[in-house]
Amino acid sequence: MSRPSAGAPRVLPADRGRTNVFVHLGVVYRRVDGLDLHLQVIQPSGDAAMLGWEAAFSGRYPCLAFVQGSGWRRQDLGAGLAFLCRLAERGHVVAVVEHRSSAVAPHPAQVHDARAAVRWLRAHAEDYGIDPDRVAVSGDSSGGHVALLLHATDGAPALDEDPDGAALRLTHTVAFYPPTDLTRMDHEDAVRELLGGVGPGEDPAAARAASPATHLDRRPRGPVLLVHGSADEVVPPEHSTGYADVLRAAGQHCEVVMVEGAGHGIWPSLFTPELIDVVDDFLRR
């Protein structure tokens, strides 16, 4: 390549085919208990400078409602944006869901909020390029627990503020290192707070009622992908492998990915490029 002459601009070709990621920050989807609850909506689009605004945002994409993990407490809604934006570049609208903290409202408030978020996203599908027939749910850690409760109760009145409300019709569920059996977490302060100040050992019925297996039945539901790090000391991998057995015994389709040597949390050691390929492929099947 020849060097440009002094004072001449360096010329680079425009990349006309890349997917843009447009993030709508702080979208209020619900007001409850005097609180505004927000979504961070990551929308794929074309290049508006090349295509024009309307054409760039005319696409319709599958939607993934992602419940950010936090021990069911106050969430840092930007914690997973790097990974989630890479998934949006593959052609998924990703909406990071804020729920009430367990310090403000114990279980099942978090499930109520996530369900309301999914219904809001479907009702506002046209505003954010969402295909309303392709809505999935996901979450990491405590958010994965909430996502699995939505899956287990989809189409049933349990844990629904509106027992006559429409089913979520979730196409897929993806849970990263989720706690699935709260009866095994008696020494976790976060679980005690979620259950309203009592530990699983004091009230095992409450712990079972807040665990997804209690609500699972054999009615058809979308498939589940469970992802766990083999070195997770916060939520041991048995929470995923054990729940996979429960799902399969109930006739549900389930896949498990174990990331060798990975610990707990949204860190690059677990959220690798290979994992994005796996999740993207799962959501498209």
Score class of each variant (00 low, 15 high):
D15R: 15
L226C: 06
G197I: 04
A210F: 06
G80E: 01
D203K: 09
I276M: 06
S5D: 15
A207D: 07
D164K: 14
I266P: 00
V11D: 04
H239F: 05
G196R: 13
G143K: 00
Q68F: 01
R10V: 15
A210E: 04
A49M: 07
R169F: 00
G222R: 04
G229D: 02
V227P: 01
T183L: 11
V278I: 10
L159W: 11
R192D: 03
T19R: 11
G7P: 07
H38A: 09
A244Y: 04
A109S: 08
L194H: 10
H239L: 02
A48M: 03
Q252P: 01
P44Q: 10
C63V: 08
V93P: 00
A136N: 04
R115A: 04
Q43C: 07
A205I: 01
A114Q: 02
A166H: 11
P108M: 09
A205V: 01
P268F: 08
E238M: 13
H24C: 05
P9V: 10
T241L: 05
G143Q: 01
R219G: 06
L84S: 01
A14K: 15
G261C: 08
A166I: 09
G265V: 06
A95R: 00
R219N: 10
A167R: 14
A205Q: 07
T241H: 05
A175M: 00
P268E: 09
D245W: 12
G251C: 01
A65K: 00
T183E: 12
F22T: 10
